[in-house]
Amino acid sequence: MRFALSQEQTDFAASMDHLLSDLDMTAVIRAWTVGEHEPGRKVWHALAELGVTALVIPERFGGLAATAVDLVVAFERLGYHTVPGPWVETVAVLPALFEDESLEGVAAGEKLVSIANPPHVPYALDADIADLCVYVAGTDLRAGTPTSALSSVDGARRLFAVEPGERLGVADDPGRAFDLGALATAAQLLGAGQRLLDTSVAYAKQRRQYGRAIGQYQSIKHLLADVATKLELARPLLYAAAVATGSPVRTRDVSAAKVAAGEAASLAARTGLQVHGAIGYTAEHSLGLSLTKVRALVGAWGTPAFHRRRILEALV
């Protein structure tokens, strides 16, 4: 068995990197934070042209019918570049909830979808600008109406309380939909953690103290090496979970990936602050965009305690 990404998957990730690196993502994120969504919408449409929004949608609705591994490849890059918006809900979760003509608009990048799935996803992300808001109540799908806005540690994650309304239908597989949401979030965490590591390494090479780059000191090298190790140990768990999305061990593997990716990204965030020093705490520095994203995603689509409990139950 070949445990490596295909050339097509590697090229797809490179295409996303090339596109997002050419954009001023810091400006896009800051605009999204203050409610200016047009720059973020342009990024959404640009990624839709690459096929990101159509990944796991069936071909009859204009999708690519790709695998969960392809989904993870894409969401790792979305996390690396801290792309704002309800990507998990629209691209990963919705196609697993139901299949009808509305997915055509999602595949084309014309529809943004927000989803509340209590108790583990009690609030809907970006429900104020979503073209469709879905409230998952067990196997029932209902139209959601956003009520009050809530604050988040990540300013670019605009959360809303939602009231369930008109019945939309029956969920195809709500358990699998939730697991795909957790898997995509784990991929975002891994990508964000890698971005924090890369940023910290670059800073350690150019920041000088006592006549030497701080990256030459053993203490800094050890900190960064620990992060690199943690990320590399989480990556195979993430891709193993993607392969297992259709197997009986799906919940165990997805939870293991979510916990491992969250721990690795959290370590990358703490180390990034240590390496950057006081400048890393400033609102003006772009490091904070990844720091707050990690902090928010660790508890999104299931808390670490919930996922650890699922692992324990699966093993016992």
Rank of each mutant, 00 (worst) to 15 (best):
V69F: 00
E163W: 06
G215Q: 13
R176V: 06
D253R: 14
A265G: 06
P146V: 03
V72E: 00
G191V: 04
T26S: 11
A4S: 13
V316D: 15
E99H: 06
A177N: 05
M1Y: 04
Q9S: 09
R235Y: 08
Q209I: 12
V136Q: 00
G63V: 08
V73S: 06
S148W: 12
M1A: 14
A46C: 00
R157Q: 06
K205V: 14
G62L: 07
L273W: 06
A242T: 11
C133D: 05
G63H: 03
R250T: 11
A225C: 01
S102M: 02
H276Y: 13
S151I: 07
V52M: 10
S200H: 02
T67S: 15
T82H: 06
E163K: 09
V73N: 05
P58Q: 02
V72S: 03
L291K: 05
G193K: 11
P174T: 06
K293W: 05
L71F: 08
L297C: 01
D198L: 05
D198W: 08
A228D: 12
A225V: 09
A265K: 03
L132F: 05
V93D: 01
G211R: 04
R167Y: 02
G299K: 14
S15R: 15
G165W: 08
L23T: 08
E163F: 08
L287V: 09
A186G: 07
D126E: 12
A242V: 06
L197M: 12
D253E: 15
A268N: 03
R295N: 14
E89P: 00
A241H: 10
M16S: 08
G175R: 11
V136E: 00
Q194V: 13
H45Q: 13
G105I: 09
R252K: 10
Q206M: 15
V249H: 15
E101M: 08
Y281P: 10
A202S: 11
T199P: 04
A278W: 13
Y210R: 10
K205E: 14
Q188S: 04
L19C: 06
R77S: 11
A240F: 02
L231P: 02
R308I: 00
Y210C: 04
S151Q: 09
S255E: 11
T251G: 05
S152L: 06
